[in-house]
């Protein structure tokens, strides 16, 4: 019995590892100076929001059984586009944000078509699209940094508090709302469940009459929408955007990717939740605030990622070993060894 209890605990810890890690970080925060100040919390969550959008996109595509490496470039380009259009064409902010988001949708659509119609492996296709996006955005801004200019209305709005007594910026709250919206789609709509099904077993889904191609494209489009919208808002929120956004320090893509894995989204598709990724990313954001040196951040996050992967790989390795065991014989084995002992 003792053994069984222990096993249950291990499974429990593993299942809720993102929550437990968040709690751990929060406890560590008690011992840090100026950690639980409203200002700090507002800044940490606000600055961490971009990665949440990226993580969201990456997770959806991963659930559908593919990989999308373009999320970071999509968001960077969306940020550039938004700021650029406002500065040069004098378009209103709302329109700029919509155009930024649409760019993401378009890219998601292209990715989806490359993967489903041309049957290119998603990872490889996204590498190609990454290059294309990089080229397009360099051409768009000539490699210069674009800034928000003089119109700070939206910047103030996003940085400000939506609810007076909550130390959370409007940007973070929008992010959270969007996350929960996508969560609802994934969990409670037919499209969402089909995304899980296609990721879990594409053949079964096809036999049951699900249009797998459309589902995969939809996953890519949602991913593109999230990355585009997030990037556009982030451009306004931070007031500036450049092509190398996030290439210094730890790349946002890596954070999103790590959060997916730590959160527990299955790297082979079919299982996962944007909420897990969301919690993991908040955890990572606070972790970053906790250890100020970028170096240590990278190491800690990297180690956590590798640990999770090793755990999952070893678990799969052990599972595969006993695949195809005959139930009759296994009962017999238990009886025999039970008698022997």
């Amino acid at each position: 019995m003792e053994k069984k209890n222990f096993k249950l605990n291990a499974a429990f810890i593993n299942r809720n590892r993102s929550y437990l890690l968040l709690v751990l970080i929060m406890i560590c925060g008690l011992f840090a100076k100026n950690f639980y100040t409203p200002y700090n919390i507002q800044a940490v969550t606000g600055n961490g929001s971009l990665v949440i959008w990226l993580g969201l996109g990456f997770t959806i595509v991963l659930i559908a059984g593919h990989m999308d490496m373009t999320v970071m470039y999509m968001s960077t380009f969306a940020a550039l586009l938004t700021l650029g259009l406002h500065a040069d064409q004098k378009l209103p902010w709302l329109l700029c944000v919509i155009i930024g988001a649409l760019m993401g949708v378009l890219n998601g659509l292209i990715m989806g078509l490359l993967v489903t119609k041309l049957k290119i492996h998603a990872f490889i296709a996204s590498i190609g699209m990454q290059l294309v996006l990089r080229g397009v955005m360099y051409v768009y801004c000539n490699g210069k940094e674009l800034s928000i200019g003089k119109d700070y209305t939206w910047n103030d709005m996003l940085n400000g508090k939506l609810i007076p007594f909550l130390p959370l910026s409007t940007y973070f709250i929008i992010t959270t709302i969007f996350i929960f919206g996508v969560m609802v789609i994934l969990r409670y709509t037919r499209l969402g469940r089909n995304i899980h099904m296609v990721g879990g077993n594409a053949e079964t889904a096809w036999l049951a009459g699900i249009k797998s191609d459309m589902v995969v494209i939809a996953a890519f489009v949602i991913s593109g929408l999230a990355a585009g919208l997030g990037g556009a808002l982030n451009g306004i929120y931070s007031g500036a955007a450049n092509v190398t956004m996030g290439e210094k320090g730890i790349s946002p893509f890596y954070m999103a990717f790590t959060a997916c894995v730590i959160g527990g989204t299955d790297i082979y598709g079919g299982k996962g939740s944007v909420i897990w990724t969301y919690v993991s990313l908040i955890m990572i954001a606070f972790l970053k605030a906790l250890c100020k040196s970028t170096e240590l951040q990278v190491l800690v996050i990297g180690a956590a990622l590798v640990l999770c992967l090793v755990y999952e790989t070893v678990a799969k390795y052990n599972r595969d070993k006993v695949l195809g065991r005959r139930p009759n014989l296994y009962i017999e084995y238990k009886n025999e060894t039970g008698n022997a002992k």
Binding site: T294, Q297, V298, L299, G302, L305, Y317
Partner: peptide, 30 residues
């Protein structure tokens, strides 16, 4: 990890990239 444990090659090497990068940065202070 890839040959023996059959880890997903792309995901594993991405993780290694991050981990070793962290090690280098910490040891040599970036």
């Amino acid at each position: 990890m890839i040959g023996k444990m059959r880890a997903n090659a792309i995901i594993w090497t991405l993780a290694v990239n991050l981990l070793i990068s962290g090690v280098i940065r910490v040891v040599w202070q970036g």
